[in-house]
Every structure is written in C-alpha cells, then in structure tokens.
Amino acid sequence: MNPLKTFTTVTILLLTASGAAHAGTTLDAIKKNGFIKCGVSDGLPGFSFAEKGNYNGIDVDVCRAVAAAVFGDPTKIKFTPLTAKERLTALQSGEIDVLSRNTTWTSSRDSAQGLNFTGVTYYDGQGFLVNKKLGIKSAKQLDGATVCVQAGTTTELNLSDYFRTNKMKLTPITYDKSDESAKSLEAGRCDVLTSDQSQLYAQRIKLAKPDEYIVLPEVISKEPLGPVVRHGDDDWFDIVKWTLFVMVNAEELGVNSKNVEEMKKSTNPDVKRLLGVEGDKGKDFGLANDWMAVVIKQVGNYGEIFERNVGQGSPLKIQRGLNALWNQGGLQYAPPVR
C-alpha cells in the first residue's frame, strides 16, 4: 500500500482545497446571499418531488420552514436535487447549507463524516417491495433473490446484514437513482426493491401497475430521517433544529397555519412564548422575535405538513404511526420553548 499512499498524498496536493474556508458563519453567508441552499431528493413523491417547476414534500417543507424562520419568506430557497451518493459530500463541501433528503441518522454520519442531525422529521424503517406474482409472503423467503437498492445508503448495509443473519444468498444491484431501481423492478431485472418503507409506498405510485406490487410485512431496520447540517456552526445547527421543534410544539399546542393569529391572543403561556407574544425567546436565535409564529403561519405545524405531503391529504395515505405526537402514542416529541 505504501507507494500508493505516497502517490495519493501527491494527488491530494493537486486537488484544490476542498471546502475552501467558509468565511464567517453559515447564517451570515445565507443572509448575504438572500436565500438558503437546500439539498433535496431527486424525486420521491411525498418527500421531495418537482411538479410543474415546484418542489413539494415533507422534506421540502422543512427547508421552507427554515427559510421562513430566517427571512420570513418560505420561497427564499435554492433547491439542489441530489442522489443518495452525492448528498453528504455536497453538504460537507458547503455546496448546500442544509440537507433535507430522507437521510438516516447514524453514528458514523454524526462522527466520522462531520455532520449534525438536527432532529427526526420521519421515523421510518426498511422494507421490501415485491411483485405479487412471486407469491412471497415474508422477507425470510427471499433466499437467492436479486435485490435492487440505492447506492451509498444505510439501506444497502442493512440489506447485507439481514441476508447474512438469516443465512440467505443475496445478489444486489446498486443504482444511483431510485428511478432506475423502480424501472429494474418493473422489467424483472430484480425480484425485490428494498428501501425505507415510506419510499416504497412512494415508489409504488410511480410504477405503471402499482396494484401488482406489495410491501412485505417485515421492517428490518430503524431509519430515523431528518435534516442535516455541517459540524462546527452551532448557531445554524440550533436554528434548523428548533425550526422542526417549533412545528412539533405547535401541533402539540394546537396552533396551526390557519389559527395562528387568533392564538396570539391565547392566555396559555406556552403558546404566548411560542408565538413571540411574551418574552424574547425568538431573539436568542439571532432572528426576529416572532419567527416561530411566522414559520407556523407560512408553512404550518408538523401535523399539517405530514398530512399534506404523505398523510391523508396526499396520494400516499400513510398513517401517522410512529410519527404521531408522543401524547398520542407516537414518537414525535419536542423540548419546550422556554
């Protein structure tokens, strides 16, 4: 390995300084640019999907909320569609300010890869999508199957783990784009498509004959999906983190985009603090004092963005399940605004 090492060291010298020093803080740069650079998926209905030149989805709404928090205007965003393989490097190198692209929170991404997950927008788990014709009822019957999977994902690793623990033979085909996986499943190049369950439902809608495919009951992993920022800028990290918490708290307190103005008259001190009527909790973030109210008004609370994009108000019709509020049997829980 030694000659190679020397060689590569030399090559590194030739590389331009990747991620050249960022001048000032992320927030300063964003304010100077006048927009937030947000990395989203390259096409996943419900999460981020471009339709008629407009991005829609729960991941997109998280970015919109951050823009509303910073600028008071949810449209001040530049979206960058990224494949699973590109996304983390794009964030590390400063090409985007925040990555909101159904990305799983893991220890190595938090540590070795120099990233910070700001919370969980969607509690997910990995599943399998198969053609009904195969007559498969359980993932345990997949011995010897050819599986399509997206390159550079946690899914790819879980897949290998699952087949290894169950002593099954695996033939994986890894594509950069989820569309290619879906096309391959339809053509029969692979027997199974594996991904986070939410994505499987989204992918299924895009198939020519969605009814011919089923999602197997097994969920083989924990996939907490959430927005990500770079290590090393705590102020920016706090803003993105609390934008999500604000939306969850708003749902818990019954504040939504329609009633936010009325709620400002509420006597509940929690609501008053959230909406910036009482105290200066908003200012502590270096933003306008009422930024939380603006986020709720312009984008909505967590329940609203969930239902609108992936829940009952969308073609996906996904149940709240794990993503219900903590006091309704789910896992969504936000620290208090205080």
């Binding site: 190679l4 590569t8 060291t9 090559t11 590389l15 393989k85 590390q92 070795a112 550079g152």
Partner: peptide
Amino acid sequence: GTVLNQTGQAIECIAITMAVYL
C-alpha cells in the same frame, strides 16, 4: 461511489481513484 459515501472520506477515495486511472 459507495465506499466514499459509506465512509465520507471523499478526498482519499477520489485521490486513490485518480491515481489508479493515471
């Protein structure tokens, strides 16, 4: 692609790849 993404060590992976093609 995959190794770079799973480890996040972009510079090393790209450097090795470039060196190999060279």
